[in-house]
Design a protein around this nucleic acid. Sequence first.
RNA 1: GACCCUAUCGUCUAGUCCGGUCAGGACACCGGCCUUUCACGCCGGCAACACGGGUUCGAAUCCCGUUGGGGUCACCA
Length: 483
Amino acid sequence: MSDTVRTRIAPSPTGDPHVGTAYVALFNYALAKKHGGQFILRIEDTDRVRSNTASEEMIFEALRWLGLQWDEGPDIGGPCGPYRQSERSEIYTEHVEKLVASGDAYPCFCTRERLTELRAHQRENKLALGYDGHCRSIAPEESATRRSAGEEHVIRLAMPSEGESTVIDLLRGEITIDNAQVDDQVLVKSDGFPTYHLANVVDDHLMGITHVIRAEEWISSLPKHVRLYEAFGWELPVFCHLPLLRNADKSKISKRKNPVSLNHFKRAGFLPEAMLNYLALMGWTMPDEREEFSIAEFISELTLERISLGGPVFDLQKLTWLNGKYIRELEGKELLERLKTQWLSDEYLLKVLPLAHERIETLQDFFSYAAFFFTGDVEYDEKARTKLLAKGKNGPQTAKLFRGLLEDFLEPILVWTVDSVEDAMRRFCEKTEVTPKEVFMPVRIAVTGRTATPPLFDTMAVLGKEVCRSRIRRAIEVLRTIK
RNA sequence: GACCCUAUCGUCUAGUCCGGUCAGGACACCGGCCUUUCACGCCGGCAACACGGGUUCGAAUCCCGUUGGGGUCACCA
């Protein structure tokens, strides 16, 4: 196993599948394939509060849609399983105890209150933020007694307090950081689950990962990870930190400023191969600067060293252009097949049809009546615009209302159904003290462009979260311009 | 704020390691051609080496500094 390349994508199932996950997965997948190695999917669900299986399922679907099929993973198993961190607790416990025994890690009994105070104090006095090592001096015998007595605690990594660490990133070379800058990271939380740092290192080693290709945001914790490898006496993998995808304003890509859900791109009609091609262009170029290429060509030409380090702005316009190029190159028959994967699938039509059924008088009526189920953003004509306003509110006020609805109530919905949408909408009304009557018509218009539609929740359920989100976003923009 | 990463057209980038082409390509934008229209396609145009010092005959390229941008500083990943 030592000379085969093994890479992994290790997403955390805490929301909609993210375009950044696809980006990192692409490079991991391609490198493994290039060298005839394995690409592994590992689910990092150690955050018991935020992790959920709906999100995990969406990650599977999104990666499969893109064609980034893994060789080992939670759903298909493999020699290094389980591939879901929540099922590997004993492994982490066993490993961390070795570190406690060797003195490379130690139990910490500090309360959250003390930690909060400590941070406040450090901030006030402009000191470096970080744990002060308070529990480090507790004698091993004493902490062992306290632990067995059931006292709540975490396990921390004992970082050297002096000297400096030099770590190597494949793309950036040596990076030297003062050890004093590195915190005594919590490795095991008080609920007994490991943090990312511990689980990630242990799993990468146990799963034989040879190349850790991940996002740039991890660079600052690299010294901790390297320390862990050393403490365990393990050989280091190659670390390669990819530049972070950016919003137009150069900040780290975020859903507030960009569509980032892979579900969105699928629903909006981007071809998976165009998506991958575009993502490959972020920070990387073909030796001959050719911009259109297949995943197979990417695999054969890939060299990580050709990755440039400036944070690439995710440019929807260029993605759209590339996608158009791919669509034009499709055979007519193939184009039909693509449309049949979503909008023209029996599955989708059978959802739309019942909503239109009673409301049409000729078969042809269906197409005009149900048009908004098939388009992207909708237009708001003059009449629609006036009714887009919530009762007694002006444009900006309604926009604000919509933003609250979208971000606090609709966005968190993971399983988008008639019931979950209705529930969110009703909770929204209660919380913001507006009546359904005042706000449902504006929402109806926002998501359909029409004043007469099938029942709102059914309509929203069929449209899907992605379409509703993007149309409400658009409505917010429009509302801001209405006095 | 501290630490780390980073810096070529508005955007994605080639060129940088091994100093020496009017700094090349693509998206977007603008003009033209094609065309009953639109789109596609084709042709052309606009547009960048962040700044300041060095080193050198010569610097986008090497060195130092400055500035800008980003990331991290959680019992989230």
